[in-house]
Amino acid sequence: MSTVFSKIISGEIPGRIVYQDDTVAAFLTIEPVAYGHTLVVPVEEIDKWTDIPAELWAHMNDVAQKIGKVIVDEFDAERAGYLIAGFEVPHAHIHVFPANDMSGYTLSSAMRHDETDPAKMDAAAETIRRGLTATGSK
């Protein structure tokens, strides 16, 4: 059975994709700790990050770092948060988000889907896409 992440990647269900190639995709989470909160995932359904082949893991981290740099620059964040977490979707993913303190590292502080502003989510996705394009990362 396909995961919700695979369905976003394939276009089966809507998602705010900011980056995609043959092996890695990145899209905004529907429950962000801050606008710009992005998930970096392997296209292949791999449940645990420890099972991801080293070359793919390196590529995922390269994409996460590029997104993190855009987040710091474009969202006026002190840092880009990086977190591996999540039992709710059996598809490995890296969380990258604007961070000015440790609060974002507690995903329990995330906004619920119905609390987010769709216009702000769309703007955040476009900001990341533009930033990646400007740096030649997309």
Score class of each variant (00 low, 15 high):
M1L: 02
S2Q: 15
T3P: 02
F5M: 00
S6R: 08
S6Y: 10
K7V: 09
I8N: 06
I8T: 04
I9F: 10
I9E: 10
I9N: 05
G11Y: 12
E12V: 02
E12L: 00
E12W: 05
I13H: 04
G15Y: 10
G15H: 07
G15V: 00
I17H: 05
V18R: 04
Y19E: 01
Y19A: 00
Q20P: 01
Q20R: 14
D22E: 11
D22L: 02
T23P: 02
V24E: 08
A25H: 08
A26N: 07
F27E: 03
L28P: 03
I30Y: 08
E31G: 07
E31W: 06
P32M: 03
Y35M: 08
Y35H: 08
G36T: 01
G36N: 04
G36R: 00
H37R: 00
H37T: 00
T38S: 09
V40T: 10
V41T: 14
V41K: 03
E45W: 03
D47G: 03
D47C: 09
K48Q: 14
K48A: 12
W49N: 06
W49Q: 05
D51H: 10
P53E: 14
P53V: 04
P53K: 06
E55A: 14
E55F: 09
E55D: 15
L56Y: 05
A64R: 03
A64C: 11
K66F: 07
K66H: 15
K66N: 13
G68L: 00
K69C: 15
V70S: 07
V70K: 06
D73M: 01
D73L: 04
E74K: 15
F75G: 03
F75M: 05
D76H: 15
D76L: 01
E78Y: 13
A80M: 05
A80R: 02
A80I: 00
L83R: 02
I84W: 11
G86K: 07
G86H: 08
G86Q: 10
E88A: 13
E88L: 13
V89F: 03
P90G: 01
H91I: 04
H91Q: 07
A92N: 03
A92V: 04
H93W: 05
I94S: 05
H95P: 01
H95Y: 06
V96F: 07
V96I: 15
F97R: 03
F97A: 06
P98S: 08
N100M: 02
D101R: 04
D101L: 01
D101C: 03
D101M: 05
D101T: 04
M102N: 11
S103A: 13
G104L: 07
Y105D: 10
Y105I: 01
L107M: 15
L107V: 13
L107S: 06
L107N: 09
S109V: 08
M111Y: 15
M111W: 12
M111G: 10
R112V: 01
R112D: 12
H113V: 13
H113E: 13
E115R: 00
T116F: 07
T116E: 12
D117S: 04
K120H: 10
K120A: 15
M121A: 14
M121D: 12
A123Q: 15
I128S: 06
R129S: 09
R130P: 07
L132A: 09
L132C: 09
A134I: 00
A134L: 02
A134V: 00
A134W: 04
T135W: 11
T135L: 12
T135E: 13
G136E: 02
K138W: 12
